[in-house]
Every structure is written in C-alpha cells, then in structure tokens.
C-alpha cells in the first residue's frame, strides 16, 4: 500500500499541493493566534463578556478568550479549525470515489484485478492520513508556540482536543462518502454534508437560547467534539466513543453501498 503506485499513495500525491498549503497556513495561523494572546486576549474577553447570551451561545459559553484555553477555543478549536478540517475531509470524502466515477477513471480501477473493497479502503485511508497530518501539524505548531510565546496552555488537553478534532473531521468525510456512495452524486455528498455541518453547529450552540431545540444537540457532532470543554480540561470519553461509532456507521454505509451497487459510468 505504501508503494508510490498504489491507490493510497496516488490519492495523497494528488492532493500534495492543497495538503501542503493547508498544513502550512493553518500551522502558521495557530502560531499567529497564540502570539496575539497577550496583546488582544483580554480585550476579546471583555467583548465576549459584554456580548450577551446569544453572542456567547454562538461561540460556546466556555470559550472565554481571557484564558489561554479559552483563547485557543475562541479563535481556533471552537469553530474555525473544525470547519476547516471538515471542509477538507468533506471534499475528499465526496470525491474519493465520486470524482473518479464522474470522470470515468473509475473504470481503469474496476477493470483491474482489485476488489471494490480495496479501492474504498485505500481511498478512505488516504483521507484519514490527510486529516491526521493537518490536525497534528497544527498541534505541533501549538506546542512550539507554547514555548516561544510562553502561552501556558496544557498540551495534553490540546492533544486530546486534536484527537477529537480529527475524529470530528473524519466523521464528516465519511458522511460525505456515504451520501455519494448511496446516490452516485458527488455534489449531493458535498451539499448535504455541508448543510448538516452548518445546521448541526447551530443545533449545538443555540439550544441555550431556544430550549425547544435542546434535544437536537445530541444529533450534532459538535456536541461530541466540544473542543472548548476539552481545552478547559474536561474530556468525556463517551463523546469520543460516540464519534468513533458514528464514523464506523458512516464508513460501513459508504463501503457496502459502493461495493454492491452499479457504478454510474
């Protein structure tokens, strides 16, 4: 599988430019954000406190930027990084099979003596690898910045948050993959998953304002990711477990629907 001509390596190689750009940009951004804590963190804290219930609910009530953990959650791990990473994995998930099916190159693979399962597994592992590289590059940037700028964040909490972020992104990637596998439509995979991620964010954050939607928070992957709480030192293993189960279900749906359906070429 690690041969440069394997499906896995070709899938990663195809994304080498975007992978490099995302890794570098997000890592530098993380360092920039941490460097700004001393100068603007407290001002943001005042804005946050004075913002009111709706404002605080939108960013997550624990994301008080006046502390290093709160600052990192407010600026990076609360919304921004999860959405960025999910955009990447949604794109990869819907395109893994979808792009090749639309372009016709899937025929080249399917005409070779390899199983559809193997195609799906290698493509999925490529997506997991990309998400792993980006999320951990940001973590390493935070570790470096912690030293350079004497940030004072608990790196174990950041590491656990990185794991949760990684699982969160993988879930959305496999969700997009499952939608594409079921429908043979790459664009539907992207749009439906995009809608889900947007609506699930609001399901999770706005229930403190509208109590009627509180039960819906359990349908939101953001609820189980909860980067702000993890950075504050509060990790719920059950949440990580739920994410892993959700990933498994989404992957299985995508895998078995692709293996058993007619390909749209």
């Amino acid at each position: 599988m690690f041969n440069k001509n394997s499906i896995y390596m070709c899938s990663i190689w195809d994304r080498r430019k975007s992978l490099t750009i995302w890794t570098v940009v997000l890592s530098l951004l993380a360092m920039l954000i941490i460097s700004m804590y001393d100068s603007v963190g407290r001002e943001f804290s005042e804005i946050f406190e004075n913002g009111g219930g709706s404002f605080q609910a939108f960013f997550g009530e624990e994301a008080d930027p006046g502390t290093p953990a709160g600052w990192l959650g407010f600026e990076l791990y609360g919304i921004f990084l999860p959405v960025c990473l999910a955009i990447i994995t949604i794109g990869m998930g819907s395109s893994s099979i979808g792009a090749e099916e639309d372009s016709g190159t899937l025929e080249l693979l399917l005409a070779s003596p390899i199983s559809r399962s193997r195609i799906m597994i290698e493509k999925s592992l490529a997506m997991i690898t990309v998400a792993f590289i980006i999320s951990n590059s940001v973590f390493l940037a935070v570790c470096l910045s912690n030293i350079l700028f004497a940030f004072g964040i608990n790196l174990i909490d950041v590491f656990i948050c990185t794991i949760s972020l990684f699982l969160f992104a993988i879930f959305f990637g496999f969700f997009a993959l499952a939608v594409q596998s079921l429908t043979k439509k790459r664009n539907l995979g992207i749009s439906l998953t995009g809608f889900y991620i947007g609506s699930s964010y609001f399901m999770n954050t706005l229930h403190s304002i509208w109590s009627s939607i509180e039960p819906m928070k359990y349908l939101s992957p953001f609820y189980y990711y909860d980067g702000n709480m993890i950075l504050q030192g509060s990790v719920e293993l059950i949440n990580l477990t739920v994410l892993i189960i959700a990933i498994s279900i989404a992957y299985c749906i995508g895998h078995f629907s692709f293996v058993n359906r007619d390909t749209g070429i």
């Binding site: 016709g104 005409a111 070779s112 003596p113």
Partner: peptide
C-alpha cells in the same frame, strides 16, 4: 477480481 487477471479492457470514451 480473478477474471480481470485475464482481461484487458479499453473503454469507449477512454478516461
């Protein structure tokens, strides 16, 4: 999978 070891295929509109 096994039978494709013996087959060479060219699609009508090669991609």
């Amino acid at each position: 999978v096994r039978l494709k070891e013996h087959v060479g295929y060219l699609a009508g509109d090669i991609a």
